[in-house]
Structure formats: structure tokens, C-alpha cells
Amino acid sequence: MTDMTTIPAMATITEVHPLSGDTSFFRLGLKEGEAQGFTFTPGQFVQLSVPAAGEFPISLAGSPGHGRELELCVRKAGHVTAVLHNLRPGDPVAVRGPFGTGFPVERMRGNDVILLAGGLGIAPLRSLFHYFLEHREEYGAITLMYGAREPSAILFRDELAELACRRDIRLMLTVDFLTEEPAGGPVCRVGLLPGLLMGIKLRLDQTYAAVCGPPALYRCLITELLGLDFPENRIFLSLERRMKCGIGLCCHCAVGDFFCCTDGPVFSYDRIKEIPGVI
């Protein structure tokens, strides 16, 4: 096995399909031998290299149980992601990682969990959600609340429609605006994500929240959760920062005196709440 911290390990794209106008799903297969026993915790990320274009941090969006097979959900956001979006199955990419501190799945065991995803924030939470489903009996009530701008921006629509039929989880979707409803999509409400929390019954001392989304969403979601008396040390957020190295070296990603890439990206709210501009 090569050192995947400094040298990107080669991988092949095995599947690509669009999830929305600007976001696609990528499945990668790490080369055999290079990445024996690759595993991770939901919430961790990798640095994905697109040869001759560059490298960027990306959440692992699949279940950790798939070994050398990685699932990513990538929005075309700039130079490198645009080049990636032009690649096809069979094309080479490379991976460093996994990096960072993910969600505390061990600590969450035996508790209820509520996952709150806004937009692209579904990527790391999908990994966590699949992890919970694969270990269903070890966790209490599982709720996924997911908000997108409009129906066509809901990522993983088909998968969610299927999951919506399961009786052992609760899935709640909402969109900011109702444009045309795409046929066959899962049922969703209209309104902002924090609105879904209203009227929800939570066992506060036995529930963990996992939150991921754009900064503006954090501010109103946290207000809402704290309004429900949700304990600060049971709210886990995944933060985004500019990242170049992923290993606490390039100094771009600091939040307060933490490195987002190593101490995070997942932090409990009580650890970061005093840091100005953190969300």
C-alpha cells in the first residue's frame, strides 16, 4: 500500500451520472494493491486529483463499507471540478486521504439521530445515513431532513424516493420554491429547512444532530435547534474552508485555533461557538 497522505493513489472512474443541473455522482475504484483496506468515518473527506487540472477536497458520500469503491457527489464549481465533469468512465483520477475527523458514530450509538442537510450538504450526510442504515439495529430513531432550492435541485432523488417507503426511518424533504414538480420524485414540502423542525418531537437527552449545508443555513438551523433546547454538545456541524493540503500544513483552513482539515471538518457546536465568523 502506498502512502496516500502525500502521494495520490490512482483510481478509475467507474460510473458517472448527473444528479442535478450542475452536480454529478461519481463512483471511483481505487487501484488494487494501492489502497488495501481503505476505510473511513462518515464526514471525512478525500483530496481528489484530476490529472493536469489539480486537486480539491471532497466529502466521501458513500458508505464506508465499500472498500476500494468510493462514491462522490461533485458540483461543478470552478476550474478543477469543471474538468472532472468532462471525464467519463474509464478515465483516471487519484485520491489522497481519507482526511479529517468525521461524525462520532460510536458516541451516537444507541441514540436517536437527526440529519439536517441543505443543498450539497447531503454529500457527507448521505454517507452517515447509509452507515446508520447498515447498522440499523444499533441506533434509535433515524430522521433525515433535507432541503434544496427547488425540486430539480434535490440530489439523489430516486434513492430518496425508494428510502421514503421504509417504515424504520423518517425522511422529510423540503424545497424553497416549488417550480415544476418532476415526475416520480419523492414527496416534498415547500419552505425552508429549519421549518421542518417545528412541531417535531425529540428526545433531547438521547438525540444527536448532524448538520451540513451552506453557512447561512447553519445560522438559522442552530438558532432553531437551540430554541428547542437541543444540547450544544450534541449538535455536529461539518464546516467548509479553503483547503490545499488536507493535513494541517498549508494553513488555509484554520477556524479559531483549529485546523478544519484535521481537527474537523466535523465539530460539535459547543467547541466552535465562540469563534467569530465560524458559521
Binding site: A52, G54, E55, K244, C250, C251
Partner: peptide, 10 residues
């Protein structure tokens, strides 16, 4: 001071 940027060039 050692912070650095990373660029890839074909």
C-alpha cells in the same frame, strides 16, 4: 511563515 498554495500544470 510557511503557508503555501498548490497548483497543477499540464
Amino acid at each position: 511563515c510557511y503557508c503555501f498554495d498548490v497548483q497543477e500544470r499540464g
